[in-house]
Write a protein that binds this DNA or RNA. Structure first.
Lengths: 213, 213
DNA sequence: TGCGTTATAGAACAGGCGTTCGAAACATGA
DNA sequence: TCATGTTTCGAACGCCTGTTCTATAACGCA
């Protein structure tokens, strides 16, 4: 990647500013005026250089057919995550049905990088209420990122739906002979034992986010 | 906000898909072909409706002058945060100089919503090494979001630079008569006492992010 | 039935816009 | 100094593109 000329850098940053303001790319003549160039062919020439050097991508014969490469890369790393409610001991989670996943209406949406969600699909978020998870280093008010799964490995922190009781809690999951042990992360609380038929896994915790004052 | 007609919804989602793929808006005739409309005036008509209803914004007499409103809102809520290194007891943090903030080259960048960073400027991130912060509910491997500040309130979790020792640690900050107490979050560790002249605050923790296996 | 509103359609206009070509200025290096 | 490649310039071509005008239904409402 060669070093850009002064004029090329000005063009590049103008395109960036233009996109920031308008959300669509400038025309060649927009660039011409902004960078005080006297001919469209000069702009065309320098845009070709910028494309050859990998800074932009051009679509031939298309008005405003300019795309910033780093902008595209950044956009592709982002995932919108719906925050769909709160969780606390004894309160049900309104877990979305897995079918209408894309169109769910969440009051809050957090955009996170794919590094955080590990590129997983079916990710949602819950706000934790109470200190029942302090031993899992999860505090009151934390946001837990959940992935929708229906099966869990031993020791994983999962949201489980207890059918008979009609409630959902966040516990560590252990499959034992003839029963399932749901271990609270808080050591002062007792484990819950449940029959396998009564337990429905609704998701596992894949990340924790906390904001401090 | 009235309910959109079938055709208007198709137009809206086509614009969205087009932007997703190309990163610049479609022309009226692009929409015409994609939505099987037989006249440009019909597209124009429906775009006007979409603008009146607040879904898009149009720039008059400008090719591809269409902007999705939610796209703009989303973009403005995002902030790129550089992950600039690791922190552990006895290791220095490479805190960036506050002057060349915008142009720093970080190995890793996390994009976060402004809700997370609280819209603050000068935010960076550190990866935590070791369990010295377990009592602050911060685990080994967690990412702490830091805001660059040079002064701290009592009790805040801050990164401090000990000039004489030439090292940086993450501790709770307490100003005491004639000295500063740096309290480890881990209760098994002893506090450090330092002279005020020897202490330089380099940032405070504003959020914690953890990924689980 | 008549009337205003909404939605669709076709066509044409005028300026927008990317492209191309010839020429010249400029820098680089043998 | 000459040759070569880079960069700039002005102008013109021709398709692209938003706009506008007129016409035609479809629909609700009185």
């Amino acid at each position: 990647m060669k070093t850009l000329s002064d004029r090329q850098q000005r063009i590049l940053s103008f395109i960036r500013d233009f996109l920031e303001e308008k959300d669509y790319p400038p025309t060649i003549r927009d660039i011409l005026k902004a960078c005080q160039i006297s001919s469209t062919s000069v702009v065309d020439y320098n845009l070709d250089v910028l494309e050859r050097e990998g800074y932009i991508r051009r679509d031939a014969e298309v008005s405003r057919g300019i795309e910033l490469q780093d902008r595209r890369r950044r956009r592709e790393r982002l995932v919108p995550v719906p925050v769909i409610g709160r969780i606390a001991a004894g309160e049900p989670i309104p877990v979305p049905a897995p079918d209408n996943w894309s169109m769910l209406a969440a009051a809050e949406v957090v955009e996170l990088s794919q590094e955080l969600t590990r590129g997983q699909e079916k990710v949602y978020a819950l706000r934790v209420k109470g200190t029942s998870l302090v031993d899992a280093l999860i505090d009151d008010g934390d946001i837990v990122l959940m992935q929708y799964v229906t099966a869990a490995e031993n020791g994983e922190l999962v949201a489980v739906w207890l059918k008979a009781e009609g409630e959902v809690t966040l516990k560590r999951f252990y499959r034992e002979p003839g029963r399932i042990r749901l271990q609270p992360a808080n050591s002062q609380m007792q484990p819950i034992y449940a029959e396998p038929a009564n337990v429905e896994v609704q998701g596992k915790v894949i990340a924790v986010v906390r904001q401090l004052g």
